[in-house]
């Protein structure tokens, strides 16, 4: 089934927000193709009647009491920020719309 094209890799890079280079596109296209070819084997045994497992431990209903816990100060929150202004994280202009 796989056979992933260079264009598809470019689309994936865009979805994943990776400004990959032209050379990388070539390399990744080949490698992803090879890997996908190998991992497609899961389809051989993944029959309809087998339930998927999303969690390794069978826990349910793990809740926290609705009680305030101390968090970070503004200074701590911003300590690692590449840029900050007026107590906020400063980021370049945003092109996309809010969702």
């Amino acid at each position: 089934m796989p056979n992933i094209s260079r264009d598809e890799v470019a689309h994936l890079a865009k979805l994943a927000r990776l400004a990959v280079t032209e050379e990388e596109l070539d390399v990744f296209a080949g490698q992803l193709d090879q890997i996908l070819d190998a991992v497609a084997a899961v389809g051989e045994v993944a029959k309809d009647d087998i339930p998927p497992t999303s969690h390794a431990v069978p826990l349910t209903n793990v809740f926290r009491a609705d009680e305030v816990r101390p968090g970070l100060t503004q200074q701590q929150a911003l300590a690692g920020a590449p840029a900050a202004e007026e107590g906020r994280f400063r980021v370049p202009r945003i092109l996309g719309e809010e969702q």
Partner: peptide, 22 residues
């Protein structure tokens, strides 16, 4: 609620920026 969905930070409207964070 008193706190946020997934952490114990106060669920408060307004306030100084980035003070109800963890």
């Amino acid at each position: 609620t008193r706190t946020k969905m997934f952490c114990g930070c106060a669920n408060l409207f307004g306030g100084k920026p980035n003070t109800h964070v963890c």
